[in-house]
């Protein structure tokens, strides 16, 4: 067995000890995971973002316009001290402002208009009623009515809102099912690794 498999197997078992209860072995593995993950992200960010997008073009190719994002990014270090913390508001303002500027048209197009146009389809096709289309139309309208809180949900409005909660429950149920299945498939993968590569109980 190679060292990599041995280390991976022992650490997998260390994490699984949490199923018994919180214990020092799990805490140690968890601390190692947090540290290594932060270190990994740091290195990847340094290589892919700062070196590739900033330092190499700025200092090797002389692209002086990069001084602006460099200065903005540098102001973030102000966050590390209470007295200079307000300096970081400027780069945060750039992110928030440009994010909002992008979000207005993008959200309107992708999250609202496209979703609405996908909802409104032909209910009658070839002389028959498309049940799926009716369900989608009814689901979207009733769920939107449920989320409309400016009017009291009584009478037919309230009944439609209640229908909306049924659609929401179906959505939450399916999402729950898929989440459990994705976690289970990862768990099966880890068990397969432990039983075949690490312990070699199964081939």
């Amino acid at each position: 067995m190679d060292v990599g498999t041995l280390v991976a197997g022992l650490l997998t078992l260390a994490i699984l000890t949490f199923l018994y209860r919180d214990n020092p072995i799990y805490k140690m593995a968890e601390s190692l995971l947090i540290g290594v993950a932060i270190g990994y992200v740091l290195v990847v960010t340094w290589t892919n973002s700062l070196m590739a997008l900033l330092f190499t073009p700025l200092f090797s190719r002389g692209e002086l316009w990069l001084i602006v994002p460099f200065a903005l990014g540098f102001l973030m270090f102000g966050r590390l001290h209470r007295r200079t913390a307000i300096l970081s508001r400027i780069p945060i303002g750039v992110l928030i402002g440009s994010g909002a500027g992008v979000a207005i048209p993008a959200m309107l197009e992708a999250r609202t208009l496209r979703q609405l146009s996908a909802t409104v389809g032909p209910v009658f096709a070839d002389g028959t009623v498309d049940i799926s289309m009716v369900v989608v139309l009814l689901g979207v309208l009733s769920t939107l009515i449920y989320f409309y809180f400016s009017r009291e949900q009584v009478g037919w409005w309230g009944r439609t809102a209640r229908l909306g909660t049924w659609f929401l429950m179906i959505f939450f149920g399916t999402t729950f099912g898929y989440t459990v299945m994705s976690r289970m498939s990862t768990f099966i993968g880890r068990m397969e690794f432990l039983l075949s590569d690490f312990l070699r109980i199964i081939s």
């Binding site: 989608v136 009814l138 939107l144 659609f167």
Partner: peptide
């Protein structure tokens, strides 16, 4: 269909 419609809303 039903799950997608709630997600869409």
């Amino acid at each position: 269909n039903p799950a997608m419609s709630a997600r869409r809303a």
